[in-house]
Each structure stands twice: as structure tokens, then as C-alpha cells.
């Protein structure tokens, strides 16, 4: 029944979302606001479903798993339960224990993870910039030009390198980016219609 209803719902709500772009009237804004309200409600329900799925998976790991898998699952579930209890018992406002744990534990962990980006970038650049083919050579020369132009030493070593760097960024780079955007825009438009019309999409669309 729900699957049967989903198709007309997708068509109606999808069409409303498209129409909203062309109708500036307040009625259109009202519909948009209601749709966003529903989205928030759906997202809240989906978050609960996600958390339950997470808890179920880790509980299964604890009952079936061995060694580090079991320990990691126990830590995850324990942390979830602890944060839930702290938030419910002591509140989540500024200066609360919940906020303090978030700021002093989770944020440093996240920052550490994101700091890996720099190291990963260096190793990826080292791998990518190898003279294996003509495109790779162009990539290497372009990247080195832009890199050198960004440091004072670059201008000292190669006079007027910043001019070439600017040309690369404002010329070929912008042209390629715009080309990508045109392709993405057209494909996104067609993808949206395919989903709304049920030609294809992740909502139980009909198959040819």
C-alpha cells in the first residue's frame, strides 16, 4: 500500500517543488515552508531509525564478535548510552556536562581526524604527479606552476611565474569548471525528472 502511494506522492511533491521555483507568491512560500517542516519531521524519525539500527548492529557484534570488534562495539554503545544519560539528566545547554564532553573529547578527536588531510594530500600528490603520460605531465607542470607562484621563492626562481599561474587558474581551470557545471546541470535536471516520472530512481521505480 505504502509503495503504491509513494509514486503519486513523489510526482505531486516533486512537481510542487519545481513549481515553487517559478512562483514567487506567498502561497508558494507557504507550501515550501510546510514541505520543509515535513522534511524536518521525516529526518527526525529517520535519525531515530538510524540510531536504533546502529545500536542493534553493535549489540549483535558484542554477542557474536571476538577480540577488538567486541570491545569497539562495547565502547560505542557505552559512549552512546553515557551521552544520552548525561544529556537527559543534566541538560545540553552551554556550560553543561554534555557540552563539556563534546568540546573536550569529541571535537579534538574530530580535529585529529581532519588533520590527517594534510598528510594524505601530500602522499596523494606524490602518487599523482608522476610523469607516466602526457595528461599526467600537463597536470604536474600546471600544479608545480601554481604551487611555485604561491611562495616568494617561486617568483625569485622563475620571474613572472605568477602571471602563468593566474592564467592557469583563470583560463583553463575556469573553462573546465564551467564545462563540468553545464554537464552536471543537464544531468541533474534529467535525473530529477527520471526520479519524479518513475523512469528510474531509488524509490521503487518501475523497471523496463
Amino acid at each position: 500500500m505504502i509503495r503504491r502511494l509513494s509514486r503519486p506522492l513523489v510526482i505531486i511533491l516533486g512537481s510542487l517543488a519545481i513549481a515553487q521555483f517559478f512562483v514567487p507568491h506567498q502561497a508558494s512560500r507557504w507550501v515550501e515552508a510546510r514541505l520543509l517542516d515535513w522534511l524536518v519531521l521525516l529526518e527526525s524519525a529517520a535519525l531515530v531509525a538510524g540510531i536504533l539500527a546502529l545500536a542493534r548492529r553493535h549489540a549483535a557484534r558484542i554477542s557474536r564478535g571476538e577480540g577488538p570488534e567486541r570491545a569497539l562495539a562495547a565502547v560505542t554503545l557505552g559512549a552512546m548510552a553515557f551521552m544520552l544519560a548525561t544529556g537527559l539528566a543534566l541538560g545540553t545547554g552551554p556550560g553543561s556536562a554534555f557540552g563539556a564532553i563534546y568540546l573536550s573529547v569529541l571535537q579534538p578527536i574530530q580535529a585529529s581526524m581532519m588533520s590527517l588531510l594534510g598528510f594524505f594530500m601530500a602522499s596523494a600528490v606524490f602518487r599523482s604527479f608522476r610523469l607516466t603520460s602526457a595528461p599526467a605531465t600537463i597536470l604536474l607542470v600546471s600544479a608545480l606552476t601554481v604551487l611555485l607562484a604561491r611562495v616568494p621563492l617561486g617568483e625569485h626562481l622563475v620571474p613572472r611565474i605568477s602571471m602563468f599561474s593566474t592564467w592557469i587558474i583563470r583560463g583553463p581551470n575556469v573553462a573546465a569548471t564551467r564545462g563540468l557545471w553545464i554537464g552536471i546541470g543537464l544531468a541533474a535536471c534529467a535525473t530529477g525528472f527520471r526520479v519524479i516520472l518513475g523512469i528510474q530512481g531509488p524509490t521503487g521505480a518501475k523497471r523496463s
Partner: peptide, 20 residues
Amino acid sequence: IGEELLLAGPLLSPGGCRAA
């Protein structure tokens, strides 16, 4: 890249989706 991702699903599918 970009449109390749958007078209990958339809292109890997048979029939009408691919035509789309």
C-alpha cells in the same frame, strides 16, 4: 566526475533507463 556519476546508474541499467 560530475555527470558521469549522475549517468552511471542509468547507463548500467538495461532498456528505457539507458535510453533516458
